[in-house]
Amino acid sequence: MRATLFVTAIGGIFLASLAAAAPQERGKVTNLPIPRYVSIKASEANVRRGPGLTHRIDWIFKRRDMPVEITAEYEHWRRVRDRDGASGWVHYSLLSGMRTVIVDQDLLELRARPDAAAPIKARLEMGVIARLEDCGPDWCRLSTGGFRGWSPKGALWGVAPDEIRD
């Protein structure tokens, strides 16, 4: 269990307290964090109503590298949620650990540095899928279409608001 130190100033006096952070949920199959983001590996991926081949196919992902969020695990199946909030079960072999994001803002400016005043390297249309590289508290480094640069984290779907990646 991880402990967090909280420091509070009251009338010029600093009070420190330790609070236990809630342990993050882990998948029963992989022991990886739940929820977590991954991407679709295949050019077509069936999304089923339940975890198994006998369950009806509700829809098909037709876009390779689409980011999805894993919300549950059952044997070789992962329940995923897409950007629109739709969820279903996908076989683990159709998923990749390669991280991607979807641009969630039209004409998102990709900048040379994680700074709003940095030169613009490209403008990305809403719905573009980009490979996720690094992320700080507010900015993420992306690569797509031969361009590489930084964009505000809040304009992307497929990365948690508190996620840091080096």
Rank of each mutant, 00 (worst) to 15 (best):
R2L: 13
A3N: 13
T4R: 11
T4M: 15
V7W: 08
G11S: 10
G12I: 05
G12M: 10
L15M: 00
A19E: 15
A21H: 08
P23M: 05
P23G: 11
Q24W: 10
Q24I: 04
Q24K: 06
Q24D: 12
E25R: 13
R26F: 15
G27E: 02
V29W: 02
T30E: 11
I34E: 04
I34K: 00
R36A: 07
R36G: 02
Y37W: 07
I40P: 01
S43Q: 03
A45S: 10
G52N: 09
L53H: 01
L53E: 04
T54K: 00
H55Y: 13
R56M: 11
I57R: 14
I57T: 13
W59P: 15
W59R: 12
F61V: 08
R63H: 05
D65M: 08
D65S: 07
P67V: 09
V68E: 08
V68G: 01
E69S: 13
I70P: 08
I70E: 06
Y74R: 02
Y74K: 02
R79Y: 03
V80F: 09
D82Y: 06
R83E: 00
R83I: 12
D84L: 06
G88H: 06
G88L: 02
G88F: 06
W89R: 04
H91W: 09
S93R: 10
L95Q: 00
L95W: 14
L95R: 02
S96W: 12
G97C: 06
G97W: 09
M98Y: 03
M98S: 10
R99K: 06
T100P: 04
V101D: 06
I102G: 03
I102P: 07
V103Q: 02
D104R: 12
D104I: 11
Q105C: 08
D106T: 14
D106W: 09
L107T: 08
L108D: 01
L108H: 02
L110C: 05
L110A: 06
A112Q: 13
A112H: 03
P114W: 07
A116K: 04
A117G: 08
A118G: 06
K121L: 12
A122C: 00
L124E: 00
G127C: 09
I129H: 00
R131H: 00
L132H: 09
L132K: 11
G136H: 05
P137A: 15
D138T: 12
W139R: 08
C140A: 05
C140V: 06
C140I: 12
R141Y: 09
S143T: 03
S143K: 08
S143A: 07
G145I: 04
F147E: 15
F147Y: 15
R148K: 13
G149I: 10
S151Q: 01
P152A: 04
P152Q: 14
P152R: 10
K153M: 01
K153Y: 00
G154L: 13
W157C: 10
W157Q: 13
G158E: 13
A160E: 06
P161S: 15
D162F: 14
E163G: 13
R165P: 04
R165I: 15
R165V: 11
D166Y: 11
